[in-house]
Computed example of a mutant assay.
Amino acid sequence: MTDRDSGGSAPAPRSRRGQGELEARVLAVLRTAPAPVPVAWVQERVGGGLAYTTVITILTRLHAKGAVTRERAGRSFVWTAVADEAGLAALRMRKVLDAEADREAVLASFVTALSPNDERLLRELLGEEGEAGRGRPEEGGD
């Protein structure tokens, strides 16, 4: 008798990983690299039995987001992390904001939904940047 025959049901499917979880794992591994590394190096260290093609896909997505860089090494690429997990989250937030027509409404809604501690932290961060002067010119301003 097989497992299916004993209970009449198939084994429970494996739960899917959370959005961005694999990207965060790959990025964390890549940040430990001593120099630009090939996909196989990342695959070996990320664990979880990920396929080589899955790791390439994740690295390509991270590259499109600006979280990693790549350079030619023969017929393939070697990869380097340029963002940490916080930077990756910030890139995702920026992408969402850039996709909306009414940036002011999105930002206002975001800020009003913050916890009091997060709001205080954001105000402190904005106050520090305002006092030090912006390190980059305002978008759309002269």
Rank of each mutant, 00 (worst) to 15 (best):
T2V: 02
A113I: 00
L125Q: 14
A83Q: 15
T69K: 08
A35Y: 06
S76D: 15
A108Y: 05
W41L: 01
L97W: 02
A90P: 06
S15G: 14
S6H: 10
A24Y: 03
A35R: 11
P38F: 05
K65D: 15
G47L: 05
V37P: 00
S6Y: 04
G140I: 06
E71I: 06
A73C: 09
S76C: 05
F110N: 01
Y52I: 10
R92Y: 09
A81I: 12
R70L: 07
R120H: 12
G47K: 03
A40N: 14
E44K: 10
R136W: 10
T32F: 05
S115K: 07
A81R: 13
G87Q: 06
L30G: 06
R123V: 10
L125I: 07
R4P: 00
A12Q: 12
A33D: 10
V68I: 04
E71F: 02
G87H: 05
E104N: 00
P13E: 15
V26G: 02
L107E: 05
R31T: 13
E119T: 09
M1Q: 03
A12M: 12
E100K: 09
R72V: 08
G135D: 09
E128A: 08
R134H: 12
E104W: 02
A132H: 07
L50F: 03
L30K: 01
M1G: 11
T54N: 05
R25E: 14
A67M: 04
V106A: 05
R134F: 12
R17S: 14
A113V: 01
P137S: 08
L59N: 02
E104A: 06
L88H: 13
G135W: 00
V39K: 07
V55S: 00
A28E: 11
R25S: 13
T60C: 02
S76Q: 14
R72S: 06
M93N: 06
K65C: 10
I56L: 11
A33F: 09
L50S: 02
L50T: 03
L88K: 11
L91I: 12
P13F: 09
A33W: 06
V82I: 14
Q19F: 14
G133D: 02
G133N: 04
A89Y: 08
G20N: 11
A86K: 04
R94E: 14
R94C: 02
N117I: 05
R72P: 09
G49K: 04
N117T: 13
E138R: 15
D5V: 03
K65G: 08
R123Q: 10
D5T: 03
R120I: 08
G18M: 06
A28N: 07
Q19T: 14
S76R: 15
R25N: 10
K65A: 13
A86V: 11
E100F: 07
T57R: 15
A101F: 12
D142Q: 04
L121M: 11
L121C: 09
S109Y: 02
A10N: 07
A101W: 09
S15A: 15
F77H: 13
T32L: 12
E23C: 09
G87V: 11
S6L: 13
